[in-house]
Design a protein around this nucleic acid. Structure first.
Lengths: 162, 162
DNA sequence: ATATAACTGGACATCTTTGTCTAGTTATCC
DNA sequence: GGATAACTAGACAAAGATGTCCAGTTATAT
């Protein structure tokens, strides 16, 4: 129903909203969102071009939200990476009816419109302020300790024992 | 938002609903729905395997609906060719939370559920009984009159004039 | 029975989405 | 100002969706 890319983008911005104030490196985001890091870069670049996130290079760099989580909607994120398209005119290309839709396409477009509305009215702040004990991304405690730990101990696998 | 295959399937069953009683050949369906005929066969095969349409071979054959248009929903058609999948559990694969969803995925799943409901409650009969002057497929008057007329008058092009 | 209309099935081609790799460039810290 | 952390960009690979082709099989009409 929604693309993988959309799912990845949403996970990322939700994480950035939860960590507002501290730039998150792609490494960190990838670990917590379980998004393949090389693909994540592309998703973040789309978000960056759309003006939703900011990238900072070099040490202590990373990605951060440009606006307040209360001002960023799910819709904004979706449109940045994989835009929802309304059905504006008859897909069969009949000119005669102008922009009026037949019952089938009107019904389909209604469904799309409802999604649009639901996504527009939900802000990132709504997601992270949620009272549920189940936090978005369900992360922090469970994910990616192994790989990160390996990297951080930094032992070269080919190094001779001393 | 919805796949091309879904769109094609819906166009086809709506046509079959409008022509209920007379099997429609793939030729006819392709002409009126503007679906590439070779691909249409595959879509119709999916609908056939799902028990929505029936295929009849040989002369005077074609495809027809198996059930009453009042008993076939948009949802039935969609599920037959490109199923809508609800989010049943955390896509990040966290076991700890069982089937409870975090706020993000609950929101996304709500959207999917609404689509499901809207599509389930809309029957093919609703689409063709619509009072709007704009008929589904916008067809009949504009599309494919030439080819259909040629076929339906049935004159053999090679027949000698009497 | 034979010709013909029509669907079936599988192979193949193309395009888009998703994912991976590698060689850059920029910023920070010491 | 050099080392290193981090993002950027573009090429490439794999998989899935879409579209095309063709050699079958089945049913009907005559």
């Amino acid at each position: 129903m929604f693309s993988t890319t959309t799912e990845y983008a949403l996970r990322s911005v939700v994480l950035l909203a939860m960590r507002r104030g501290t730039p998150q490196t792609a490494q960190q985001i990838a670990a917590e969102t379980k998004v393949p890091i090389d693909y994540l870069f592309k998703v973040l670049q789309s978000l960056s071009r759309a003006g939703l996130v900011q990238a900072q290079r070099g040490k202590n760099g990373g990605f951060s939200l440009l606006n307040d989580p209360a001002d960023i909607s799910i819709y904004d994120v979706v449109q940045a990476v994989d835009p929802i398209k309304r059905i504006a005119k008859c897909p069969l290309g009949i000119k005669e009816h102008g922009v009026r839709l037949c019952s089938l396409h009107r019904k389909l477009d209604d469904a799309v419109r409802h999604i649009e509305e639901a996504f527009s009215s939900t802000k990132l702040a709504d997601l992270i302020d949620d009272s549920s004990p189940i936090r978005p991304l369900c992360a922090g405690d469970v994910i990616a300790p192994t790989k990160v730990k390996l990297l951080s101990t930094g032992r070269d696998l080919h190094a001779k024992p001393i």
